Simulated scan of single mutants.
Amino acid sequence: MSVPLHVSADGAPVGVHFAGRYAEDATLLRLAGPLEQAAPWARRRPGLCAA
């Protein structure tokens, strides 16, 4: 799974990728719950980047 855990200096989310063993998705979901509680992202929106 890819989880946003940080914000760069320009406001872009920085994600971390976690992988688990085959058919052990529950392990990743047990990890995702505490991460979301510690740093919620549901209401965050990154700023627009200048192109």
Rank of each mutant, 00 (worst) to 15 (best):
M1V: 14
M1A: 12
M1Y: 13
S2Y: 12
S2C: 02
V3D: 01
V3M: 06
V3Q: 07
V3Y: 11
V3F: 13
P4K: 05
P4Q: 07
P4G: 02
P4C: 04
L5H: 01
L5P: 00
L5N: 01
H6D: 15
H6F: 13
H6A: 15
H6Q: 13
H6M: 10
V7A: 08
V7W: 14
V7F: 10
S8G: 12
S8I: 03
S8K: 14
S8L: 11
A9I: 02
A9C: 00
D10R: 10
G11A: 02
G11M: 05
G11H: 03
A12Q: 15
P13T: 05
P13Y: 04
V14K: 15
G15V: 02
G15P: 00
G15S: 12
V16D: 02
V16F: 07
F18N: 02
A19D: 12
A19W: 08
A19C: 09
G20I: 06
G20S: 14
G20T: 15
R21P: 08
R21C: 01
R21V: 05
Y22S: 09
Y22V: 04
A23Q: 11
A23H: 13
E24W: 03
E24S: 08
E24F: 05
E24K: 11
E24A: 09
E24R: 13
E24G: 02
D25M: 06
D25K: 05
D25R: 09
A26Y: 08
A26G: 06
A26H: 10
A26E: 13
T27I: 03
T27E: 06
T27C: 01
T27W: 10
L28K: 04
L28G: 05
L28A: 07
L29Y: 06
L29C: 01
L29I: 02
R30S: 07
R30Q: 08
R30H: 07
L31I: 14
L31M: 11
L31W: 10
L31C: 03
L31Q: 02
A32K: 15
G33H: 04
G33Y: 05
G33P: 01
G33A: 09
P34N: 04
P34W: 12
P34S: 04
P34R: 11
L35R: 13
L35F: 10
L35T: 11
L35D: 07
E36P: 01
E36A: 15
Q37F: 01
Q37D: 10
Q37P: 00
A38R: 15
A38Y: 13
A38Q: 14
A38P: 05
A39S: 12
A39K: 12
A39Y: 15
P40M: 09
P40G: 05
W41V: 14
W41P: 00
W41N: 13
W41Y: 07
W41E: 04
A42Q: 15
A42I: 07
A42R: 15
A42G: 08
R43H: 10
R43W: 04
R43I: 01
R44S: 06
R44H: 11
R44V: 05
R45S: 08
R45M: 05
R45I: 07
R45D: 02
R45P: 00
P46V: 00
P46H: 02
P46A: 07
P46E: 10
G47N: 11
G47S: 14
G47W: 13
G47L: 15
L48M: 09
L48I: 06
L48G: 09
L48N: 06
L48Y: 06
C49P: 00
C49G: 06
A50K: 13
A50V: 15
A51K: 14
